[in-house]
Design a protein around this nucleic acid. Structure first.
Lengths: 238, 238
DNA sequence: CACCTGCCTTGACCCAGATCAACACGACGG
DNA sequence: CCGTCGTGTTGATCTGGGTCAAGGCAGGTG
């Protein structure tokens, strides 16, 4: 009856749902796939569903008239997409790798949220986590140097991938960058050239090692964190 | 029995509360005042209440070890302070003018939130609005020029003050900057010198006029918005 | 009154990161 | 096999905003 491997059960909306509620969610749920590079939804478009990322990576971006672009959300598996209670998308959402979404039609979803306290609760919690992440991100954008930005970004990705594997980040570890240099630049408020140069610099200084252009190995996670400018490396896994 | 002039009734938590619920809220509510410059709570401190700003202006900031500071929240009257369901402050909160808070003890508040769907709902809505604001802010920090940042900031303050007076921003209008140059710099990811210079430049170019150091008059709100780099000036009042 | 002290402004100079340009390296299609 | 297109790297140069330094201007305070 319900789908064990759908991450929505574990992290996103319905961690505590049971019986009827789960059945209801299962009923209103459907899947959508997008290819790498494909837009998911455009700023201002009507958005008749909310969703949880099952696999792949999606981004939320804002763009100024003249083309300057800032990423404002990076959605990895188990992250939530869409704003409950509002049917207009506020940002451009794009699939940066192949993406599978587990979608819920807005109408019944909103209604369920209204009726089921712990779903509303869960959503509030997730939104607060996102707000915290956004504020950390603001510190990065406003006050960190290019090198610190790159180090922070890699550390963030490392933490999230460690979280997926249910491990603590630390020591020697391997990870892959799910974004192009351009997307990284948009994440960090830099240009692609600066991103490229700083990655080269971190490589030269032995902070990171790379195989190909996307796979990174960290000889020492803590060393990277030192470069990121953050004081408390902390356990912030989200 | 309940307090008509407490903004918490109108915007923040309990817009739809009635009867018993209101009475409960009134019971757990108390006021606190802070003088300009005084810290309200420090990152990592235990925070045993949540609150709504009644009067004055408070800020949330993040600071790196070496002192670099980024503002991550600007709280004007009716804004909400504190994270429901977590008792550790994640940011430094400071009163930048004299501030009066309408506080609620965390324990009973959390419990009420759990029992009263529309309170949880309201909180979700407010948090989503804050998230939107944070993302707009990220675009500003990552991609706007110093001049655009200043213009955006003034436009944001203008909108919020217009909202307080229940008017649409537009045409000729007057407002006062509730922040020092330093706080503005921390808001915008700039230095005080750059803030000062760009304000001078906007004044020189006739975009803004100033009496004293804090009071601004806009000859033409739309002209300011043009300078801010935003396309859709939009009605985003929050 | 003179003297701070806190905020703000302005000028001179510098540098981190943007811009402009060239090139490297697959992957892909013909 | 050769173009070419998308992605990434590297170099040369430029510039917006940071840094350092010198005042200006209230508002307190003795």
């Amino acid at each position: 009856m319900h789908c064990e491997d759908c991450p929505i059960r574990y992290r996103a909306v319905c961690a505590q749902c049971e019986g009827d509620e789960l059945a209801t969610l299962e009923q209103m749920k459907f899947y959508r796939s997008y290819q790498a590079g494909q837009p998911i939804i455009w700023e201002g478009d009507r958005m008749d569903f909310v969703a949880s990322v099952v696999t792949g990576v999606a981004t939320l971006t804002h763009t100024l008239e003249d083309g300057r672009t800032q990423m404002v959300g990076l959605l990895l598996p188990s992250d939530f997409l869409g704003r409950p209670g509002r049917d207009q998308a506020a940002y451009n959402a794009t699939a940066t790798t192949d993406v599978v979404l587990c979608c819920f039609r807005r109408k019944p979803f909103d209604q369920m949220m209204r009726q089921t306290p712990h779903v509303a609760h869960r959503l509030l919690e997730m939104t607060l986590d996102e707000l915290d992440a956004a504020r950390e991100w603001m510190l990065l954008l406003g006050r960190k140097t290019a090198r610190e930005k790159i180090a922070s970004f890699i550390a963030i990705i490392a933490r999230r991938q460690a979280a997926l594997h249910k491990r603590r980040p630390g020591g020697r570890m391997q990870l892959d960058l799910p974004l192009t240099r351009e997307a990284m630049a948009d994440y960090l408020g830099l240009t692609i050239e600066t991103v490229s140069r700083q990655i080269t610099a971190l490589r030269r200084d032995g902070i990171i090692e790379m195989v190909g252009k996307r796979e990174v190995t960290l000889p020492d996670y803590d060393r990277l964190v030192e470069e990121s400018g953050d004081d408390s490396d902390g356990g912030t896994l989200s």
